[in-house]
Amino acid sequence: MKDNQNESGERLQKVLAQAGLASRRHAEEIIEQGRVQVNGEVIRTLGTKVRPGDQIIVDGSLLKMPEKKYDYYLLHKPTGYITSVTDPQGRKTVMDLMKGVPQRVYPVGRLDYDTSGLLVLTNDGELAHRLMHPSYGVEKTYRVEVHEWIPTQVRQRLEKGVELEDGKTAPAKVQEVIQKSQGSRPCYEITIHEGRNRQVRRMFKAIGYPLTSLKRIRFGSLRLEEKMAPGKFRPLTTLEVQKLRQEVELK
């Protein structure tokens, strides 16, 4: 096995400690004593990194890692919260809403301070990475309101892609939503698979129709329930997690 200290992965001594074999310091001693093999090669260098799938043998026995438990939640993010774990400016974050969650979870992607809607939080780092990575093309649908009705030919610019300062957007799907309440503003749903900063707001501004409200109602196979109030959250079901993993080609 080549020296992979600069590759991604976990430090070997940390993995040994996580497996309950020894403390981190004792694990370092075990490594330096030549008692650990990774993929058939004796490792004596501290800091060597291993990845999932590597075979680790300690004193002739295969190391078995405890099964890691992941948590997955759907939050209806209200406006007035930032999508961050902490904020140096002291603003409210979505973590302030996740009271009673036993394990620490992290937001998947971002929703702006003045944007509401569906937000996924998890401690499954690989799933979070893939859900956010543009190569997997996970679709996100937003419900938007504007001051006035947008002519069809103007909406078609969104569907074909509009030029922004950071390049032309990918084609989007746009449809008008008929709202029941009287006096409500024109409403549309737009589906994109990119994740640029404030992208939907910038797209509508680019066609001359700045938004008055923005709410994400769908993220991949997940859809925000109408009955879920802002600030509320729930765990994802096993089936919902399976569908998300299938969308990004995770077994």
Rank of each mutant, 00 (worst) to 15 (best):
S84G: 03
V85T: 12
T86R: 08
D87P: 02
P88T: 09
Q89F: 15
R91C: 07
K92V: 11
T93V: 08
T93H: 05
V94N: 00
M95F: 02
M95P: 00
M95S: 00
M95V: 04
D96R: 09
L97H: 11
M98P: 09
M98E: 12
K99W: 11
K99T: 14
K99V: 14
P102V: 10
P102A: 09
Q103N: 14
Q103P: 13
Q103D: 15
Q103G: 13
V105A: 10
Y106T: 02
V108D: 02
G109Q: 07
R110T: 07
L111N: 00
L111G: 00
L111D: 00
Y113V: 08
Y113A: 06
Y113M: 09
D114T: 07
D114Y: 07
T115H: 01
T115D: 03
S116P: 09
G117C: 10
G117P: 09
L119P: 01
V120R: 11
L121H: 07
N123V: 04
N123L: 06
D124I: 07
D124N: 12
G125I: 07
E126D: 10
L127A: 13
L127H: 11
L127K: 11
A128E: 05
H129W: 11
H129N: 14
H129L: 12
M132I: 08
P134R: 05
P134G: 08
Y136P: 03
Y136C: 11
Y136M: 12
V138I: 13
E139Q: 15
E139R: 15
K140P: 08
Y142T: 06
Y142R: 04
Y142P: 03
R143M: 05
R143L: 05
V144A: 02
V144W: 00
H147L: 13
H147E: 13
H147S: 14
H147A: 13
E148V: 03
E148P: 02
W149Y: 14
W149L: 13
W149M: 14
I150K: 00
T152F: 05
Q153C: 12
Q153T: 12
Q153S: 13
V154R: 04
V154L: 02
Q156E: 10
Q156W: 03
R157C: 07
R157V: 07
L158N: 02
L158T: 03
L158A: 02
E159C: 11
K160S: 11
V162R: 02
E163P: 13
E163H: 14
E163C: 14
L164M: 10
L164N: 04
E165D: 12
D166M: 04
G167F: 04
G167N: 07
G167A: 06
G167K: 04
K168E: 11
T169I: 04
A170Y: 08
A170K: 12
P171S: 06
A172V: 05
A172I: 07
A172H: 05
A172S: 10
A172Q: 06
Q175C: 15
I178N: 13
Q179D: 15
K180G: 09
K180V: 09
S181C: 15
S181D: 14
G183E: 00
G183N: 01
P186T: 00
Y188L: 05
Y188T: 01
E189K: 10
